[in-house]
Design a binder for these strands. Sequence first.
DNA 1: GAGATTGTGTAATGGTATAACGTGTGCGAT
DNA 2: ATCGCACACGTTATACCATTACACAATCTC
Lengths: 135, 135
Amino acid sequence: MQHHHASEALTKNQALVMGALSDADGPLSAYTILDRLRDDGLRAPLQVYRALDKLVEFGLVHRLESLNAFVACRHPGCDGHQFTAFMICDECGSVIEIADTALARRLTGLAQDASFILEKSTVELRGLCAACSAA
Amino acid sequence: MQHHHASEALTKNQALVMGALSDADGPLSAYTILDRLRDDGLRAPLQVYRALDKLVEFGLVHRLESLNAFVACRHPGCDGHQFTAFMICDECGSVIEIADTALARRLTGLAQDASFILEKSTVELRGLCAACSAA
DNA sequence: GAGATTGTGTAATGGTATAACGTGTGCGAT
DNA sequence: ATCGCACACGTTATACCATTACACAATCTC
């Protein structure tokens, strides 16, 4: 790493993993990412997981808990990154990323009511996307 | 099974798993449940997973996606079971189960706006519970 | 330039979940 | 009554997800 605050400057492995996720049009598991990057020199799961940890920390990637998979953030740099919600189509696997202020307020409100210090929220809606439910 | 519609009548394995979860005061992983039920005759993960699938289907148990673990529902029989939210303390592991109408409305509203057919929602808030944040 | 920090590479392991068999039992329809 | 179906059960093997532990290199700090 050359810089202190230039978190945009990714290391080699981070850039590779970010590239794989950006190229994909849906979520990828860590092992799928690994498979796609074997030709680029990645050999072990840990190399992928370490890169993913950092990318999530940077706000460039989201982890989808209900899929054990990862997606590139659709609007990186956005605030409210920690309150992002997802709609995941069980039919086609597409993922829609949502940043909703009212939802975020309700979640923080619920936490406050319970004197709960909220660090991170996971909101994942499963069902059928518009395209698949029309078909 | 003796009855058709008596979904309250659990099979042997289902009752064992339900008992283990009820006895615990927090979430348990499937493998932890298995360990606790070895003396009762359970030998393989699949026996536990099959029982868990049914218990979740019956609305007696919730799966916590961000923990890969399961908890007994605190208010079984409640409606809105599919919109339950959870606050999970990263310090002590305690889980608070929340049924909030406003939250449920917001989630269904978001889904409708996107023409998304909502089947199930996962809402898990991570942070520090009141007791742990006070300490 | 010694020490702290961070990224990297590799091997081994641990934890989570399902596939693919086959068996047994209760129950309704013929 | 018995055949067929649906469903729970049992076992083995395997697939999939994630981390621990150790060693090395580059960089930043003082």
